[in-house]
Design a binder for these strands. Structure first.
Lengths: 164, 164
DNA sequence: CGCTGTCTTCAGAAATTTGTGAAGTTAAGG
DNA sequence: CCTTAACTTCACAAATTTCTGAAGACAGCG
């Protein structure tokens, strides 16, 4: 049997969750196919699916899977594994790694900071606009440190709550 | 004179910063016009511009300004002010309010949490996938508290650094 | 060495998003 | 009230993005 009672793991329940969570991700700016693939992985039993499984479950072409997976791997939301002795590839969501990646807007922050620094510079640090930019810059610099500390606290909290 | 020496506030310096900062915002998912309008406000002397000024500086139609400003106001990145005794409207970036808004993904977080909760429920809390979703949910709940505390620390830090 | 399963790349069709001009709405000023 | 400045809404053209089928590349296997 695929599934029996109550809180079911039947195809429809899974699909319902996948689509609704993906919709949230899309709204937050993620590409649609990437979001759907990611949600499908999250909802899978092992946290691992092959390209074919993804394609079948989501009803999308191999090309779409390929594109989505490339994006997800680049942003470290999933990792790819070569199933040894086969040309199949498997994609895995690492459970605790992906939201760290989510927080890893670090690269993004760095670029924002660079743009702001240039702005302070070119508008002049003593102009009102320059001061405004400088304060914004300070905020991002502050954030960067805080986020790191926060993730550390999360790890501790996680151990306590979910055991290791 | 509009500007004299060195770190110039000439139209070109401003425009260069505006476009480059806007580009970063776009890359992070913001609509292009909204990003440009916002950057222009950030780089303005008073942090306030009228619709006409925005349109002229960015070379965009009133319709585009209107759309951008609506988005920015909805997300609390800027506030609108009726200039009293005139039909002009002015848009202001609040210097210290907008990045609080940036952090106010709270509404977003809430919706993610809702979707995850539904997922845990429908996949079953004792399935591997259910447990994975539950942990993710816990992460977001943890985040929500942390972000609030972090912003409080920023306010303190800000006072110290920039005076009150 | 050639066959075959699997992923990737590519060109183009389809859908979506974006920005504009023009018409519509609102309210200040005479 | 009527006029008119200022913002908003709307329909559409243009640009961009998205997804697919088909061809290509790569690597196991016989």
């Amino acid at each position: 049997m695929t599934q029996a009672s109550g809180g079911g793991r039947d195809a429809e329940s899974v699909s319902k969750f996948v689509e609704s969570f993906a919709a949230q991700l899309v709204e937050a700016g993620m590409q649609r196919m990437a979001a759907r693939v990611f949600a499908a992985l999250l909802a899978s039993d092992k946290g691992v699916l092959t390209s074919a499984e993804l394609g079948e479950q989501l009803r999308i072409s191999p090309a779409a899977v390929s594109g989505a997976v490339r994006y997800l791997a680049q942003t470290h939301m999933v990792s790819r594994e070569r199933e040894p002795g086969s040309r199949r590839e498997r994609y895995r969501v690492h459970g605790d790694q992906w939201y760290e990646a989510l927080t890893n807007r670090e690269a993004v922050l760095k670029r924002w900071e660079a743009a702001l620094r240039e702005g302070v510079d070119s508008l002049g640090p003593d102009t009102p606009a320059g001061r405004r930019l400088a304060e914004t810059l300070a905020f991002f610099e502050f954030m960067e440190g805080e986020v790191a500390a926060m993730m550390e606290r999360w790890r501790v909290h996680r151990e306590k709550t979910f055991g290791m």
